[in-house]
Nucleic acid binder design. Structure first.
Lengths: 260, 260
DNA sequence: GATTGCTGTCCGATATACCAGACAAAACCT
DNA sequence: AGGTTTTGTCTGGTATATCGGACAGCAATC
């Protein structure tokens, strides 16, 4: 899935055709990965697609409201229809809806930042979050996505996989933490396997040096990890404080799980 | 903008082919309109598309996470990817973001239900809402969409259009109110034209007999109505109460507008 | 002001995605 | 049970959507 489409494309010449729908999905994934509006003229290179195709696709998707093009510098991004459609998912998905209100309740009760997370291919996505009341916030925005090795939730979300599957899923760049330290893949795999069946997983100092993450699984009908809830805490909370928070968190996880 | 181009399309023959991307967009619109998961097997009839095409499209979209298929009875609905993509829109769209927090502020300040609305083809969509503190709530859910003639916001959102455009946009069934009364299209057009340039529009007893709607426009750079904010109030608030609410609402509208 | 590069639009050829229809399996009837 | 309908999968042929490339309009550079 990486962008390999360099010069050598001339060799095969003919067989480069692709369905419109596939181009569309690639485009969506690319925009989501970039996280900011992209100039239409840059898309053909970025996606390895012909210019005429891209312009046509963008035109159709814009008319449908799935994308929006900013008037002045012709940058595309997700449109209102995508938002409205996505809201349906949120409203109708029992797990997400219950998890979100649980996250809010947790944060209001404890004053700490909590998040509801799911696996999205090779990223951990934040479905919902509620900021804590601490003066210094350590929170992420809804919709942001992290490399899995950065978080405690990530270890839980991969806990049902085999080492081979994990190795296949994790890209080399995912192992690089924000401060440039590199996570050892073998150690990471061991941590994921160890997370299986655990009621809570804690990571300290991964995303930054001054926070820690407490995550619990939300289990589906067959015991699989559907999602996680986590607290993002300062690294220096006392053991007593953490013990209380753990208890709340584990209770919430149980409450949302279909399976003990 | 309708697909009228094929003049000679002989009555029966093969001219029924359509692009995958168009099928996909139709499918999305249909699911959104239905508002609940739909059985895959029903889609071909509902969309007028060949079965093999639908099954293929659903497969691809499901793999990409744009749709989800419930395991037991094979119903499709919007998937997590749609939600995550849509969140990007929410996060990055300045108007929506500012409007949403304004709506929350308005509701917290006044205790009334307020909503942020935009035009979505021939529907008025609720982008964000915050319930009031009244014992009896009259609120809609985020993402729900109404026929334009039902609301005060709708009159503002169409106020820049010509009578012909309005006539073209409004479907006959949009004119039927929830209680079966029918809105007169000519009168509605007059109301839309009258809304042009107005700082506030009020409708009473349209969606139901016990509520009224106060809406103000959010104007873009060229004076066009980009969105509206509105209060949903009981029909029997006093004139003094309404005067105060109007003032707040108009102030919020001005604050979010690019243009006086 | 000539040159170069970039952007967006348009058009014809052809590779292929869509469609019709056959088939199997399950569900639903008498 | 036996027949009928519904559901999901698969395959080959053909209408057509995609792609390459040409073109015109701008902008930037020399």
């Amino acid at each position: 899935m990486n962008e390999q489409g360099t010069v050598s494309a001339s060799v095969v010449s003919g067989g480069n055709r692709e369905r419109g729908i596939d181009r569309v999905l690639t485009l969506f994934a690319y925009l989501n990965g970039r996280g900011r509006p992209v100039r239409v003229a840059d898309l053909p290179k970025a996606l390895g697609a012909p210019r005429s195709t891209i312009y046509e696709i963008v035109r159709v998707l814009t008319e449908a409201g799935m994308l929006e093009v900013s008037g002045d510098d012709n940058r595309v991004y997700f449109g209102r229809a995508m938002y409205l459609y996505g809201i349906n998912y949120f409203r109708d998905n029992e797990l997400i809806r219950r998890g979100s209100s649980e996250v809010e309740a947790l944060s209001k009760m404890t004053g700490e930042t909590s998040e509801l997370c799911v696996l999205n291919r090779n990223r951990q996505a934040i479905i919902h979050t509620h900021p804590g009341s601490r003066p210094m916030r350590i929170s992420s925005e809804v919709g942001s996505q992290f490399p899995i090795p950065w978080t405690a939730s990530g270890r839980l979300l991969l806990s049902h996989m085999t080492p081979a599957e994990i190795r296949d899923l994790i890209e080399p760049e995912d192992l690089v933490l924000p401060d440039r330290r590199v996570v050892d893949i073998e150690g990471f795999i061991v941590e994921c396997l160890a997370a299986r069946g655990k009621s809570i997983v804690i990571t300290r100092g991964l995303i930054n040096s001054f926070s820690q993450c407490l995550a619990v699984p939300i289990l589906g009908m067959h015991g699989e990890v559907q999602a996680t809830i986590c607290f993002v805490l300062p690294i220096d909370v006392t053991d007593e404080q953490r013990a209380v928070l753990q208890e709340h968190l584990i209770a919430s996880g149980r409450k949302l799980s279909m399976h003990e």
